[in-house]
Design a protein around this nucleic acid. Structure first.
Length: 694
RNA sequence: GCCAGUGUAGCUCAGUGGUAGAGCAACGGUUUCGUAAACCGUAGGUCGUCGGUUCGACCCCGACCACUGGCUCCA
């Protein structure tokens, strides 16, 4: 099934291919033109896949020469020649035998036949084309490629294109396959659209959370001392973190959640029991092994080895009728038992010297056996097992359910080094986590309530576009990728599907991407500039509570295992704030702004400063994050600095304001709002924060 | 983890096989001013780290680290 899915994704049906938009045709055609150009420069190149993608196209190529952006100019120049030649994209339908012969001659994905350089990827692709499906080539000039099309009419139709980047990719996405160079480019109907696209990219760059995060002093990543992927939250960033926590705590409290706190570490047994270790050990930090007796232990092991040797030499072991093969198979407990038994069996005849040696050996073996074992602790990569143990901490009745345990717990995941990305992919993460334990009857309602909470958050943050990706299991993965409970899977997935349908949530179903313990829902949202983010996840767990033996006593006095819903609507602080930075372009609404208000004085009159301080203190008394700028700079400079720092509200105070009991208000990015009575301004600010106004 | 690219002051960037430069920020002073930047001065860098080549390396070479673009992964 995984392979099948992969292929479905890569190999569109002919019908689907006919659906290609005009822009996709153009881009796919541009990929052929790029291949043509690359072959002019490096005739040995072997091509694999070259599809259009969301923002352009790519072509995967195998080539000894490492293509770098410095080569783009030359490739683009060759592409321009091919475009200027205005060759027709000509479709040729061939027989399978013909295609195989052409691939073997190196003709497919080439400018001519290439003896000793067969079109190996094309041969493999041919193999995947189902019997009976027509096989076609597309030819432009000398370049002939195995391709189902469709294409634009002529190479000259490509009016605006640009190569953008080079990356590597495994053939068919499988790391066991050869690694190919993937050359990315994009193409548009005309130059204006191409330029608009690059302008949009520039915009996105300006909103990049890494750039804004540094500029605004929200967080820093100290790879040298703290470690890569482990952000340090600076005071300004912490202000945002804590606002989000406050929002989550208030929302969850109102929805009947209770809060818990759990340690960052747990013994190996925790993750053995939960079943996470076999699946995720690689993405956890390696365990810390606590063994205070390590030195003593190795000393005893050494001593025991010597004693065994001595016993062998003295013949004591033969007297016990033991072979070395026999001994090697023993574990410490068996070893000890065996020694005890033989020593205490009267009919075994050994000399007193031999007996002394055996007894000494037995004593060492016993001491070793009785020593406490080393303990391994893992940094927690998820909160669920800890919460399960809280569930297990006391007897539970059906009257206690649903039990909703919430925690803003810090987890640690050993993400692959190449995977780290600003705040979006980190190794230390704070999750807005909660686990809801409920009965099967309660499940639908609980699940619906969780979804409602997501929608509520979307409104607060002004997220208009979202989709919930509902991931289900595959039969083939049962017992491998997924716990082997076919009926429970189907039943639970049905429940989830029904709730999604009934509550009119926008969702898509994706096969084969569930968590190992149950179906999951990933929440995708789109930022203000239309970039997609997966911010949250919501999972059903029908397996792990049973592994921990979690039970509640039902009405009929029988014990039952609860269902568990894992949910994290705000995902991790890290990713969510990274998303918000881009979404708001760093211009946070008042309630989230790190610096909500800055009081700016005009002039340095003592009475004026005192008046300004009064306002500052009043705001702080209301828990408003307010700062002051009483420096010597002219007001123009103070305003410029505050605007640059993205302070939400600037209160300028000069002699005129003081005389009238006013302050003059300026909003970041919105300019001067005029002077208003002091009290009115303060209560407005406080109300806007309380209501979390956009 | 894999492939490729990048690494000069807190930030944005110049620069050269022969002792490192600018603007902004910082600090000190002058300026007393009404909504995006008054003026003068001072200080700030083992040019990512470690090795190699060289009379001499920030520059050339190698390894490592980090970041970036992808791939793979994502409880």
């Amino acid at each position: 099934m995984p392979e099948e899915n992969q292929q479905l994704k890569e190999r569109k049906t002919l019908d689907e291919r006919e659906q290609m938009s005009e822009l996709e045709r153009l881009r796919h055609s541009c990929a052929h033109v790029m291949a043509t150009a690359i072959l002019r420069l490096w005739p040995d190149a072997q091509f694999a896949y070259g599809p259009p993608v969301e923002n352009g196209f790519y072509y995967d190529v195998e080539l000894d020469h490492r293509i770098s952006p410095e080569d783009f100019e030359a490739i683009e120049a060759e592409m321009k020649k091919e475009i200027k030649a205005n060759n027709v994209f000509e479709k040729l339908v061939v027989t399978r035998d013909q295609a195989i012969a052409d691939a073997k001659s190196g003709r497919l994905g080439g400018l001519s036949e290439r003896p000793d350089n067969e079109s190996k990827f094309k041969l493999d692709l041919l193999d995947q084309i189902p019997e009976g499906e027509p096989i076609s080539y597309y030819r432009n000039g000398d370049f002939v490629d195995l391709c189902a099309g469709p294409h634009v009419m002529r190479t000259g139709n490509i009016k605006a294109f640009k190569l953008t980047s080079v990356a590597s990719a495994y053939y068919k996405g499988d790391e066991n396959n050869p690694q190919l160079q993937r050359i990315y480019g994009t193409a548009f109907k005309n130059k204006t659209e191409l330029e608009a696209y690059f302008t949009m990219l520039e915009e996105a760059k300006k909103r990049d959370h890494r750039k804004l995060g540094a500029e605004m002093g929200l967080y820093t990543i100290d790879a040298e001392y703290t470690g890569p992927g482990m952000p340090l939250w600076l005071p300004k960033g912490t202000a945002i973190v804590e606002e989000l926590e406050k929002l989550a705590k208030e929302t969850e409290f109102a929805a009947g959640y209770v809060r818990v706190r759990t340690p960052h570490l747990a013994k190996e047994k925790m993750y053995r029991t939960s079943g996470h270790l076999p699946y995720y050990a690689d993405s956890m930090f390696p365990p810390m092994t606590l063994d205070e007796l390590a030195a003593k232990r190795s000393e005893l092991v050494e001593k025991k080895r010597h004693l065994w040797e001595h016993c062998w030499a003295s013949g004591a072991v033969e007297a016990l009728k033991l072979t070395s093969a026999h001994l090697e198979a023993l574990n410490p407990s068996q070893e000890l038992q065996l020694l005890e038994r033989r020593i205490n069996t009267p009919e075994v005849e050994v000399s007193s010297e031999q007996m002394g040696c055996l007894q000494e050996l037995r004593d060492v073996a016993r001491e070793l056996f009785q020593m406490p074992l080393a303990e391994s602790y893992y940094l927690k990569a998820m909160n669920c097992p800890h919460h399960h143990r809280i569930f297990a901490a006391e007897p539970r009745s059906y009257r206690d359910l649903p039990l909703r345990l919430a925690e803003y717990g810090c987890c640690y995941r050993y993400e692959q080094s190449g995977e780290l990305f600003g705040l979006m992919r980190v190794r230390s993460l704070n999750m807005n986590d909660a686990h809801i334990y409920c009965t099967e009857e309660q499940f639908a309602e609980e699940f619906r309530a969780v979804n409602d909470m997501y929608l509520k958050y979307f409104r607060i943050f002004g997220l208009e576009k979202y989709v919930m990706r509902f991931s289900t299991h595959s039969k083939e993965g049962l017992g491998k990728k997924y716990v082997d409970e076919p009926e429970l899977w189907l039943k639970t997935e049905d429940m989830v599907r029904r709730v999604l349908q009934e509550s009119g949530i926008n969702y898509v179903e994706v096969a084969n991407e569930a968590a190992f313990y149950g179906p999951k829902i990933d929440v995708q949202v789109w930022s203000a500039i239309g970039r997609e983010f997966t911010i949250a996840t919501n999972q059903v767990d029908f397996a792990v509570p049973a592994k921990f033996g979690l039970q509640y006593k039902d009405r009929d006095n029988s014990f039952k295992t609860p269902l568990c819903i894992h949910r994290a609507p705000l995902g991790t602080h890290e990713r969510f704030i990274g998303f918000l930075i881009e979404h708001y372009a760093g211009n946070f609404p008042l309630w989230l702004a790190p610096e909500q208000v800055r009081v700016l004085t005009i002039g340095e009159d003592e009475a004026l400063i005192a008046y300004a301080k009064g306002i500052l203190n009043e705001l702080r008394g209301h828990q408003v994050r307010a700062e002051a700028d009483f420096s010597h700079d002219p007001i123009k400079a103070k305003v410029a600095e505050a605007e640059k720092a993205r302070v939400h509200t600037m209160l300028a105070i000069g002699p005129r304001d003081m005389e009238n009991g006013n302050v003059s208000v300026r909003l970041h990015g919105k300019g001067h709002q005029g002077a208003k009575p002091k009290g009115e301004v303060v209560s407005d600010i406080v109300a806007a924060i309380r209501e979390r106004r956009a």
